[in-house]
């Protein structure tokens, strides 16, 4: 067959493959709840796939190897949800009811701040700054309280779809990937297969380590806040654990609500030293045990790249974007490096 004909066939196959990927990603982006369901399914897949492999090594069929850990995980998750969800919801409702109290307290703090600033600068400027901060915080908190019920109602769809996808990813995921990769033309096949392997290995380690980090931070914060008898302990611990996934600024954003509550809560005396210790202790454990694991698993991204990726992520998809920006940046780095090496680095 002529060289030009072969090239034409390769080009067509490549366009078809890239078109398929594009359609898949567009579907994920535009179909409601699909992206978050897929992300959660990937997390479930990466948590459970080592267990599935272990069971398969013991001689169980792929079906049983996938089903046993999946249903055990689902049961444990269900029991935990049954135990913790009522507490979490009651703490959230309590916080919502108490919110005017904190809002007033915060306004008082801003007034004090305004007085202090006016000693150093123009009173009108101080007034403007204080009112802008107040307005921003009010809108932010109103949005949070408005959005959370919607998030919960959406999460019902996600709660059904994500486990369904996880199970089939565990059962048939590798075959799906092989079928998709079979669309790649021969000239790019080895590259695509190797790239898929590198990304999958890297993401597996990264997701497992980050999840462990979230659980440890959340658990330590919860126990610490209970010990110092701080209100809304579970709700604040969940926030601290989830927001800790955002690099660099995550731990600060995660701790901020507790300090804001402490500053504005006139009802109970708060020991700031103990509150600081709770959050710092959780971070120290994270830095000493978990970060070395995570750092070992993630592609060596420069801190500037990390900050830029987080900024782009936050602009495009908010908090979710900030959380997924680092793994996505790692994937893009590996892909770019491999493509560049494949297309330019020939040694004659």
């Amino acid at each position: 067959m002529q060289d030009s004909t072969i090239k034409r066939i390769h080009r067509r196959k490549l366009i078809f493959f890239l078109g398929f990927l594009l359609a898949f990603f567009l579907g994920l982006t535009f179909v409601k709840n699909l992206l978050i369901s897929f992300l959660l399914a990937f997390v479930g897949f990466y948590i459970l796939s080592p267990l599935v492999d272990v069971l398969e090594r013991k001689g169980l069929s792929r079906g049983w190897s996938a089903a046993v850990p999946f249903f055990i995980f689902l049961s444990v998750f269900g029991i935990l949800l049954q135990l913790l969800l009522p507490l979490l919801v009651s703490q959230f409702d309590e916080l919502k009811t108490d919110f005017p109290k904190y809002s007033d307290g915060f306004t008082r703090i801003l007034m004090d701040l305004k007085m202090k600033i006016s000693h150093f600068s123009d009173a009108a400027v101080a007034e403007r700054i204080a009112s802008q901060i107040q307005e921003y915080l009010q809108t932010l908190t109103q949005n949070i309280f408005r959005d959370i019920p919607e998030v919960v109602s959406n999460s019902l769809t996600v709660l059904v779809l994500a486990p369904f996808l996880t199970f089939f990813m565990l059962l048939d995921g590798k075959r799906w990937i092989r079928n998709i990769l079979s669309l790649v033309p021969n000239s790019f096949f080895e590259l695509a297969l190797n790239l898929n392997y590198q990304i999958s290995t890297q993401m597996g380690g990264f997701v497992r380590a980050r999840l462990l980090e979230t659980l440890i931070i959340g658990f330590l914060t919860w126990i610490g806040l209970i010990m110092i008898q701080f209100p809304y302990a579970l709700f604040l611990a969940v926030l601290a654990g989830v927001l800790n996934l955002i690099p660099y600024i995550g731990p600060f954003i995660g701790a901020a609500p507790a300090f804001l509550i402490a500053m504005t809560n006139t009802g109970i005396p708060v020991n700031y030293t103990l509150l600081c210790l709770v959050y710092i202790f959780a971070q120290v454990i994270d830095m000493a045990i978990i970060v070395p694991l995570v750092v070992a698993k993630i592609v060596n991204l420069h801190p500037v790249t990390v900050v830029l990726a987080v900024m782009v992520g936050s602009q495009m998809m908010g908090i979710l974007g900030m959380i997924i920006s680092i793994p996505l940046a790692s994937v893009m780095k590996v892909t770019f490096q491999s493509l560049y090496a494949h297309s330019t680095d020939f040694r004659r």
């Binding site: 002529q2 072969i6 092989r178 021969n186 096949f189 080895e190 190797n194």
Partner: peptide
């Protein structure tokens, strides 16, 4: 058999070239 990749090549098609990074 379930894991390996079956590939079809046309007559005259390059399978790999000298100097390329090989995976298998």
């Amino acid at each position: 058999q379930n894991i390996v990749n079956v590939r079809h090549f046309q007559k005259g098609e390059v399978i790999f070239q000298y100097g390329e990074v090989g995976v298998g």
